[in-house]
Nucleic acid binder design. Structure first.
Lengths: 172, 172
DNA sequence: CTAATATTTTAGCCAAGGTTAACTTATTAG
DNA sequence: CTAATAAGTTAACCTTGGCTAAAATATTAG
């Protein structure tokens, strides 16, 4: 099962009316039914599976674009991780058909890898822009976006995008 | 380093001891300097370390509150995971001083566990409320909140909270 | 009280994502 | 061209967080 096709998240079963659960009033917000609850956690686990892959692929695309080539050593420096780790992960990316390279040479994205990178980049950009539009400082927005981007559904992305656009027109 | 030791903060983002590096401005689509870039990824890795622990502790608190007791079997069902997995994770939670229990008996939170649960719950509630205020559907908001909550800094939380409040007053 | 059932724990397995240290392969300076 | 350095890979190890199957402990029904 491949990463960028799971963005839609899990199935139906809407429940629970508008109990807005203000955290301070702590009104008895009931637990959702077990199976639905489980789906939420499953969605998170699911996202975790692809997170790192997306980050790598996105970073490789950025390096290719801005540096002309994507070298392990740069990836290691930018990810804050050892070269050995990069090497191992790249092996995995290759086995997944996302990256191609010859031994001891720098990296390229396959079609599939580029598709994933494009999507990842887009999501990242939307979230980052949204956070800034909300009023979050640049530094924080960057950090939060990095973490959040893998956990934002299409529905929310659309709303974020609309929000940023409106802010742009009306706000500044 | 044990991330859950410093329970004094809410946003898990900024707990690395040497995180005071000032942000350097750069073009929106340019790559940030390596070391700064690395900090972003480090923040995400850091958040991942505590995510699951927070989820457990939060769930245990919820079960205690709504069900009167927190049993492994319920946790397993709600997390969508085998009981063996729960058992192993609970062992870890106990060794971290977050949970206490006697063998074959149900679970309790230590002070530390309760503090963590409270914080986690608060963050979760803020993010969930914010997403709804933004206009995200209930179902999606729940899923996204579950994934996002661990990656939202205090700064962003504050802004989200303000947004929800304003929406509450003006919007509806 | 005992037997059946339910729950929890343990043991052994796996993959991912980290680490260091040692080795191989490029690249570059003289 | 060769030697030094830089970059990439491999091997051996660790922890987490999953799993299944089997064993131990509660709980409940008869």
């Amino acid at each position: 099962m491949l990463p960028y096709e799971h963005i839609g998240y899990i199935g139906a079963m809407t429940n629970s009316p508008n109990d807005v659960t203000p955290y301070r009033l702590c009104k008895a917000d009931a637990l959702p039914p077990s199976d639905q609850h489980a789906q939420q956690y499953a969605a998170v686990r699911n996202a975790h599976e692809t997170e790192l892959l997306e980050d790598y692929v996105e970073l490789i695309a950025d390096l290719l674009k801005h540096q002309g080539e994507a070298r392990s050593t740069d990836i290691a420096a930018r990810m804050g991780v050892s070269q050995a780790t990069v090497s191992k992960t790249v092996t995995r990316l290759k086995s997944l058909g996302l990256v191609s390279s010859k031994p001891y040479r720098s990296l390229f994205l396959t079609e599939k890898g580029e598709a994933m990178a494009a999507m990842s980049h887009q999501r990242h950009a939307i979230v980052l822009k949204f956070l800034r539009a909300l009023g979050v400082s640049d530094h924080t927005a960057r950090i939060d976006a990095e973490g959040m981007e893998h956990h934002v559904s299409q529905e929310t992305l659309d709303i974020m995008q609309r929000f940023s656009r409106e802010q742009e027109r009306g706000g500044s």
